[in-house]
Amino acid sequence: MADIVIEVHDVSMKFNLSREKIDSLKEYIIKRIKNKISYDEFWALQDINLTVEKGEAVALIGLNGCGKSTLLKTVAGVLKPTKGYVKTWGTIAPLIELGAGFDIDLTAKENVYLNGAILGFSHEEMETHYQDIVDFSELHDFMDVPLKNFSSGMLARLAFAIATIGTPDILIVDEVLSVGDFKFQQKCEQRIKHMMTKDTSILFVSHSIEQVESLCTRAVWIEKGHVRMDGPVKEVCELYRQI
């Protein structure tokens, strides 16, 4: 058996949807005294089990609101599951939302180092990757421009270039390939494929079934927080198309 890099064990995630948002102390105390705090429990994920092996590319598919992104966030460590646990081995490059760590008042260059630090790279490490980032994002002339003057496409290019430096052990991609023009999309796909040849495991979320089929080998179909189907990408996608 190959090495396991992600183990999701019996993970359930509960959200309390309070009917009204209470964020003031006064309201909270009054409601507490009157015993009026009520939550609607919402289980976004229920008893999910999933293991991903080294070098495997797994797609998560499902309708909107089925829990795909929640699952990705638990794997990335952003959310802590209510029940169960997630174990990961190796470095994770999360592409959950591009440009999450950008500060729009700083220049592109400063943001490269800031964002790199968010991903856990030191200044020196970023310096070795810097040229690669500039080349890949094709922003040579804009590196000293504050990000607030960037177009959304430029932002996405920069963010993707930063997030995919080096060779992470796990790459988490959530819907981010839909940005940019088709040429840049192809470039991103190529980069991901190149990573796969270097044994990077990929967890991929997309609504584009074509993209899923071209990149992944295995697909997991999630429906209302449960795993409905887990198998080779062709079979799962075929059934998924029929609904």
């Binding site: 500060d103 700083l106 800031l114 790199g116 968010i118 200044h123």
Partner: peptide, 20 residues
């Protein structure tokens, strides 16, 4: 230790943006 560079970046960002 892994996130020490981030701490440094956050602090410099704070100082830099204040008097930008």
């Amino acid at each position: 230790i892994k996130f020490r560079p981030l701490l440094k970046e956050l602090v410099t960002r704070d100082i830099k943006t204040k008097y930008r």
